[in-house]
């Protein structure tokens, strides 16, 4: 519980917010085939996999809350926060119980894909429950598969980068 640790956490959250802003102002504006990659997921999932469930839930809440409130967010405030809190906690709890498994790069990509699917799917289900028109069949059958494809293709290149940063310090403790 020392101050440098909190300063580091705040800096990492700052980086996460910058990634979210870049995703909405740069990445989504490029005319990618099949919707394109989502760097928010590529950062969030490996990060929470290397954290304790407590910290992962808090990270998910802040990142999700930022997506909910930052422009051009239009959905109900709290939707992303709730989903990312739950998935962050779930993934971190899973990773904590199977640390040896997560060390294998191939399994790591598999867990990443599973986590990304769980996040997007839960968001859609929550949208359906709230009567959100955007959680349509097209979202479940087109957007989720194409988004997963992009992110899984990029995961082998991006995950080691994220792991090599300070995020991974808690994996090998």
């Amino acid at each position: 519980m020392n101050n440098p640790r909190y300063a580091k956490d705040a800096a990492l959250l700052g980086i996460a917010f910058v990634v979210i802003v870049i995703q909405s102002s740069v990445i989504t504006r490029i005319a990618w085939p099949l919707h394109g990659p989502n760097f928010t997921l590529l950062l969030f999932i490996p990060w929470v996999l290397s954290e304790t469930p407590f910290r992962a839930a808090v990270i998910g809440f802040f990142m999700g809350g930022f997506i909910d409130l930052a422009p051009p967010g239009n959905g109900p405030v709290g939707q992303w926060a709730l989903v990312m809190t739950l998935i962050g906690f779930g993934l971190a709890s899973f990773a904590e119980r199977s640390r040896d498994l997560v060390q294998s790069p191939l399994v790591e990509v598999g867990i990443f894909a599973l986590g990304a699917f769980a996040l997007l799917f839960t968001w859609g289900i929550l949208g359906l429950m709230m009567g959100d028109d955007r959680a349509s069949a097209k979202y479940f059958f087109q957007f989720i598969p194409s988004s997963l494809l992009w992110n899984v293709v990029l995961a082998p290149f991006v995950l080691p980068l994220v792991r090599k940063t300070t995020f991974a310090r808690r994996v090998r403790r």
């Binding site: 979210i20 995703q23 909405s24 102002s25 989504t28 504006r29 919707h35 394109g36 989502n38 928010t40 997506i67 422009p71 051009p72 967010g73 239009n74 959905g75 968001w123 955007r134 349509s136 097209k138 979202y139 957007f143 988004s147």
Partner: peptide
Amino acid sequence: QIISMSQSGFSRTIG
């Protein structure tokens, strides 16, 4: 001028 597009890719909003 458009400065951003929706985060989730399927919700069609622009900033």
